[in-house]
């Protein structure tokens, strides 16, 4: 029986196979590390504004009267009645005296009782900057509840993280 599709391996076929295997390996090696990628252009720095913070309640808690408590089932008799909804958190960032970012972070959750979160990247030239950050977490207060202003020198490629420390109640620069 003649098999015309199969043929003996000639040396040229071995060479061609070797070349094709080499080409395959070369392709893998090349695109596993080339071309190089630069995320941030030279001479730039990055400011990351990121916090997760629960705003103040939109209304005050109310003390229940004994009569009101009596109407409730025994396991529900909490003396304070608090609204679940939280204030949205408003944040503003000024860079060298100019408003660079403003955001109203709504509270999460169906009942708007969760934390408000913000994540924002701001690409800036690596240089000295005057940075002012304002945060408001209470709809019932006037103006911003937290402020921080600083003059910072950012190096090329540096990442400055602006966060909010709820325990200390202050805006942090890391």
């Amino acid at each position: 029986m003649t098999m015309l599709s199969s043929k003996p391996f000639a040396w040229i076929a071995w060479v061609a196979q070797g070349l094709l295997y080499a080409l395959f390996a070369l392709g893998i090696a090349t695109f596993s590390s080339w071309p190089h990628y630069r995320q941030l252009p030279a001479g730039q720095a990055l400011i990351k504004l990121s916090f997760t913070h629960t705003g103040k309640r939109v209304a005050d808690c109310v003390q229940r009267t004994p009569a009101e408590l009596a109407k409730l089932s025994p396991n529900m008799r909490a003396p304070l009645q608090c609204p679940r909804e939280r204030s949205p958190v408003i944040v503003e960032v000024d860079l060298d005296g100019t408003l660079a970012y403003r955001h109203v972070a709504e509270p999460s959750g169906l009942s708007r009782d969760g934390a408000s979160t913000v994540y924002r990247r701001l690409q800036v030239p690596a240089d000295q900057h005057r940075l002012a950050v304002r945060l408001k977490d209470n709809t019932r207060s006037a103006g911003f509840d937290y402020n921080r202003t600083e003059t910072l020198t950012l190096k090329p490629g540096q990442i400055l993280v602006i966060d909010f420390d709820a325990e200390k109640g202050q805006i942090t620069f890391i």
Binding site: Y21, A22, F24, A25, I28, A29, F31, S32, S33, W34, P35, H36, Y37, R38, Q39, L40, A45, L46, G157, Q158, I159
Partner: peptide, 30 residues
């Protein structure tokens, strides 16, 4: 072919991660 590649062009680490800095030009695995 993969073994020869591994010997000829070994994979090496980049600089240790430093989250205070944006990495410079990276040899990305595309």
């Amino acid at each position: 072919s993969l073994l020869i590649l591994a010997l000829a062009v070994p994979v090496v680490s980049q600089a240790p991660a430093d989250l205070a800095v944006v990495p410079g030009p990276l040899p990305l695995d595309w």
